[in-house]
């Protein structure tokens, strides 16, 4: 995993009317435009940061093509990008989000229908820049690098995919146009396919932007706990409870953590205050409580 340190991601206001990113171009090679698009962004991030792609172009090809469909599903594009080491964030907010992401140096992949709904020709295009004065996007479109596409044509072919787009970023980079909840979700999906180290770097970066978001803190603390960074996990769980003492899941996990460190008295104090109206949560709380009463024997290392 790349050694990207978290950095303050808050951007300046966007006034600049244009942006052009130097994204390496790879021809789509017929049915393989999804893997080409991923590779272009992977090479871009490799040139900009310490990110190193985990897969070769050949491996991306093999993981994305469905021969009988003659192309790649959106979900498989996302899954292959994760396997390559990039976190996939959904594009929200339509047209305006495209230019905002491009402005802060984030190229995007969009799905367009080059034809009409009754005769679809689906294509993944990579957006590499825009010019608000001439009303153009720059796109790596099929065989043409940095082709100029007018806003109006682009909008017409993009609306036919219900404005689907994805922002692929290496650990430590965050999209500008998403709220904390969706960012946590995207990072967690990356974490859950075995990329926890990179996920932690991104959670830590998000923490600089949203230090009081309890969902984010919960995800970060859990990731610390899973990777045996117990002191850090303890601190963050306690932060959550200082923001929201009724956070039953954080209370449960903190108690479990303390129990596993052999601090059963503290664990008991924490868990005794925890209740939840949700049956599933309550049953986890009960199980933890029970375990602590039994002296935390199972989990003491």
């Amino acid at each position: 995993m790349s050694a990207c340190a978290p950095k303050n991601p808050l951007p300046k206001d966007i006034d600049t009317p244009s942006s052009q990113l130097l994204v390496p171009f790879i021809a789509p090679r017929s049915e393989l435009c999804a893997s080409s698009s991923i590779e272009m962004l992977a090479l871009y991030w490799h040139s900009k940061t310490s990110f190193t792609p985990a897969l070769t172009l050949g491996e991306l090809d093999e993981r994305t093509l469905i021969p009988a469909k003659g192309g790649t599903l959106q979900i498989e594009l996302i899954a292959a990008a994760r396997a390559d080491g990039l976190i996939a964030y959904p594009l929200r907010g339509g047209f305006e989000s495209l230019t905002r992401e491009l402005f802060v140096g984030h190229p995007l992949i969009v799905l367009v229908n080059r034809s009409f709904a009754w005769y679809p020709l689906w294509h993944y295009a990579t957006l590499t820049g825009y010019n608000a004065q001439t009303q153009h996007f720059m796109t790596h479109f099929a065989k043409s690098p940095d082709e100029l596409l007018s806003y109006s044509t682009f909008t017409a072919i993009w609306e036919r995919s219900e404005k689907w787009g994805v922002i692929l970023l290496p650990p430590g980079e965050l999209p500008l146009t998403l709220e904390a909840e969706e960012i946590v979700r995207s990072i967690y999906e990356f974490e859950s396919v075995g990329k926890i180290e990179g996920a932690i770097v991104s959670y830590e970066t998000a923490y600089l932007r949203w230090p009081k978001d309890t969902n984010l803190l919960f995800a970060l603390a859990n990731a610390y706990y899973k990777t045996q960074q117990l002191q850090k996990a303890e601190t963050i769980y306690k932060d959550i409870l200082s923001i929201n003492p009724a956070h039953a899941l954080a209370r449960n996990n903190l108690a479990d953590l303390l129990c596993s460190m052999g601090r059963s008295y503290e664990a008991l104090n924490i868990i005794e205050e925890a209740t939840s109206k949700e049956a599933q949560t309550q049953s986890i709380l009960n199980a933890t409580h029970q375990e602590i009463l039994q002296g935390c024997k199972k989990r003491v290392d």
Binding site: P28, L32, C33, W122
Partner: peptide
């Protein structure tokens, strides 16, 4: 589900 390709 749509499957994106070069598809010109």
């Amino acid at each position: 589900l749509p499957a994106g390709a070069d598809a010109g």
